[in-house]
Simulated scan of single mutants.
Amino acid sequence: MARPPTVFRRSANLLLDHIASAVAIGDALPTEQQMAALCDGSRTAIRSALAYFHERGLIGGLKERRLLRKPAPDDYFDDAELQSGSDRVREVLMERIYHSDLPPGAEFTEAELARAAGVSTISVREFMIEFSRYGLIEKKPHGGWRLCAFDRSFAMEVADVRQMFELAAIERFATLPAGDPAFATLEQLIARHEKLGSVMPARHKDFPALDRDFHTFLIGLLHNRFAQGFYDIVSLVFHYHYQWDKGEEMARNQYAVHEHLDILRALARRDIAAALEGMRIHLNSARSTLLQSIRTRERAAQAA
């Protein structure tokens, strides 16, 4: 059976959330137009979701669309099923970099990455060609790719743009109304940071994934596709080059957890000035350690 389109799966999950919280058993679902607005999707995706609900016994018919029962956990699609091919490739590539499976200068093939991501080599090739325009990877013969180094000026340009986006994200947070879903995510991030901080330094290698979630949350507040796409570059530049300097990794990660918590707690109490100052401190720390990792890489290259 063919895998259903990503946009349908996302729409279905969003509608299930709405049904669970806002539709009583026996009531009719909203109009297709209203549901499309709720999901920020097309009517085609909504109709596919309705057909899925009818098949699952959630609604009594495709015309009246009256709710027969509340959604159950197995009505939802798994998070992994909500990713497009390029999203999955990006996730696997980043995870392999974070866990040192792809150290600096490593080479890999499209087929290898496709197997790891569970996608076609076409999806991998399309993603890599798009990503290669930043100069961080280069094409090799026979479907191969190589992770590249970059110079100090490139790193500083990335750091400058990162600061612009992330400070703007904190200012955007200040405009959110009470009860916005971002506050629930904020509390979850605080709890996750406190939990990881309590087991540091033994679990310091768990930090990169949490770091990505922290910054992705902030960038997501901007609702800006260019900012979101740019964070892929930020993530690769910073975490990839840290692989050159493993000596300070434990202390660096431990310190960053506390910097994150300062920012998150300031946001939770709506102290935007403190959050902005905390972010400036954090970004300056990241810039400093990135420069140190580049110097480490350059010394290693000279000694080789």
Rank of each mutant, 00 (worst) to 15 (best):
G105T: 09
A106C: 02
A106K: 02
A106W: 01
A106L: 02
F108V: 03
T109F: 07
E110L: 09
E110R: 12
E110T: 11
A111W: 00
A111L: 06
A111T: 08
A111E: 09
E112Q: 15
E112P: 06
E112C: 08
L113Q: 01
L113S: 03
A114L: 02
A114H: 05
R115P: 08
R115Y: 10
A116D: 11
A116F: 09
A117D: 07
G118A: 02
V119Y: 05
S120E: 06
S120M: 05
T121G: 12
T121D: 14
T121W: 09
I122N: 15
S123G: 08
V124S: 04
V124Y: 07
V124K: 03
E126M: 12
E126P: 03
F127I: 01
M128L: 15
M128W: 07
M128C: 08
M128Y: 05
I129A: 08
I129N: 10
I129F: 09
I129M: 10
E130G: 15
E130R: 15
E130P: 09
S132H: 06
R133M: 08
Y134M: 12
Y134E: 13
G135C: 06
G135K: 05
G135Q: 05
G135R: 04
L136M: 14
I137Q: 04
I137K: 04
I137H: 06
E138K: 10
E138W: 04
E138H: 09
K139Y: 12
K140I: 09
K140C: 08
P141M: 10
H142I: 11
H142C: 10
H142Y: 13
H142V: 13
G143C: 02
G143S: 02
G143R: 00
G143D: 00
G144H: 09
G144T: 10
W145A: 00
W145S: 00
R146G: 03
L147T: 00
C148V: 09
C148R: 13
